[in-house]
Write a protein that binds this DNA or RNA. Sequence first.
RNA 1: GUCCGGUUAGCUCAGCUGGUAGAGCGCUACAUUGACAUUGUAGAGGUCACAAGUUCAAGUCUUGUACCGGACACCA
Length: 720
Amino acid sequence: MKQEVPEIFLKPYDSKEHEEKLYQMWEASGFFNPDICVEKGVTKPDAEAFSIIMPPPNANGRLHAGHGTDMTLKDIMTRFHRMQGKKTLFLPGSDHAGFETQGVFEKKLQKEGRSRFGMDREELYQEIWDFVQENKGAMESDLRALGVSCDWSRNTFTLDPEIVTKVQETFVKMYEDGLIYRGRRSIHWNPKFQTSLSDIETMFEDRKTPFYYFKYGPFTIGTVRPETKFSDKYVVVHPNDKRYVEYEHMQELEVEWINGPIKATVIKDEAADMEKGSGAMTITPWHSAVDFELAQKYNLPMEQIIDWNGKLLPVAGEFAGMNITVAREKIVEKLKEKGLLVEVDEDYVNAVRLCERTGVVVEPQVKDQWFVKMDSFAQSVLDQLASGETNILTTTHEKTLRHWMNNSQDWNISRQIVWGIRIPAWFRTIDGKEEMTASLTEPAGEGWMQDEDTFDTWFSSGQWPVLTLRYPDHQDFKTFYPTSVMETGADLVFKWVPRMMMFGKYLTGKAPFKTIYFHGMVLDKHGKKMSKSKGNVLSPIKLGEEFGTDATRMAFVVANPPGADMPLSEDKVRAYKKFANKIWNISRFTLDSVSDMSHDSEPSYSQRDTEILASLADNTKEITEDIEKFRLHLAAEKIYHYIWHELADKILEESKEVINGEDVAAKLARQHVLKECLVTSLKLLHPFMPYVTEAVWQELPKEIRDRDILMVAQWPKSSS
RNA sequence: GUCCGGUUAGCUCAGCUGGUAGAGCGCUACAUUGACAUUGUAGAGGUCACAAGUUCAAGUCUUGUACCGGACACCA
């Protein structure tokens, strides 16, 4: 009985016609959820687990090319393992992205002529919450458009009440375990956004800054920051510096300085670099991390010169109240008038520390903050790598991470912003004595005030695998922890990844993931960084609309090995759009060729038939292995190559003769072969190009498909 | 300064455990009522930076050279 080939195949594949419908079908089927897969019998109850956690995309923006790679790679692995019959969970979530979001929101306020200062804490929080909810919805619809097969029923937000409580509990536990301390230390201060930052939230930028040499008593000192020098009462020289042998350690001298004579003390310490300038420097402990350490070493007094807004304090005398950028020139002018300016190096290039998110110049300040002791945690991360409990696919990133862990600093986790999880610490002063404690609820007794600060965003996202799987009691935690793979951007190698490793091990005793897969950055077709200002940004959503999501996904994975940056061009995406259409036409041809085939008859294969099936099995084996071993870029290329240059170019071409020939037995055998090639190819390609393969699958006669939905069909066996 | 990379077709890049090289774009020719104009088919194009070594065999492993680049650190 001849079956008509569905009409839909008569025109080229139109992604727009299918994608949304198919996603809705998948979602409605419930098969994104591993529990439902078990319930409905597509996964065995005792099947092995495969789990992957979505790095929470920030809830303040849309999906960009980086996310495109990220989500595509994860979804490929998810779909593959699901088809292999594993209990497969891809768990979605989003991150409140503390300071970053508040920064974005404050810019919005600025545009509206408003400011967060003076706003009520609750009111501000609520406004940001609403702002984020909107963006969060947009982000989630972007993920759906990309065909991401994650389990939306488990969608988690870092500010869900349950998560907030868990994060606070971790703080209390760490406080009680002595892993967190309150310290008065030199921190990075963002004067515009009024918060402290951790090292990794800052970056350096080379700027041409005049380098001034001033006369300081008998010394010549060099500086790029005269505005901090008002109360510099200590001059440091190297103990071996022959120029200064006549001065002794702690010797006092009277020197003429900015606002008149002061008493200066000589410090001899190896921190002074004899090669640099005159070899003598004065120190400003409050506004320099290096100076701060020296001051601590010798127990020197510290004085704040610049206030929290970047203006000079009364210690600056006539310059008090001035913004430091304005004050600098005036101070230099005054020193020049006093004859204390020796020389100016106008070509000096200085590395200025900036806030990574906002570009604001960061001011070192001394402040009481919460710090995580990193020694034991850094060791824990190193141990996880050394023992092989966690394996990083790319050795170069493993080296980077090791290097970072061997040089880790204590981590400042307090932020002076409201958008985040409030630190559950309490302070009070009783009889002039300060007390503090950590507790989820207000401690007993009078006068306790909760810390106003919130956690650094990485403090919560660092616990993500543990939090999303509902440690410690939930069944998800028992089934899916440790997660199988952490696939994320290489830029997170020392931001997010080690924090998850330290928290995961600390809280559960087990590393949070077995394998770490880093992908690189998506660059433009010339290998340049994508940026809005250059106008070379490619949006995965727009590419999907123009060329189809399948084509976009293929472009993100082919020739994109772990760890390396990848240039992306529209041409590349367009090429895979052609491929989607090729699948469409192969399917049409095959369905037409097998339309009068008898499915229950036993074929008698020719030698060539056997060869074709053997080659199919070989390809299946290689592609399966490539995916299992995280060589997704090779698997994608192989399936592409097989379908186009073997199946279409050779097998289909040579089959025309057999199908149209007189030999009924040979025709029947070849029909079985073609059917097998099509079904297997669709399955192999499905993780990469889910839409077009599913669209074809839905048109296949029931006799030749093992499940109604390709997404949960059984992965082909590689041995024939 | 410390630590990492890279050098393969005109361009941008793949190439897993060593077996004389691949993709996309570009280029050339042919093909349009028989799966495919949202094109297809065929083809040209590479002493795999250089040198030495290991090996029966090196783009692939080792060492060195040259030239590019990245990350981190540094505000005297």
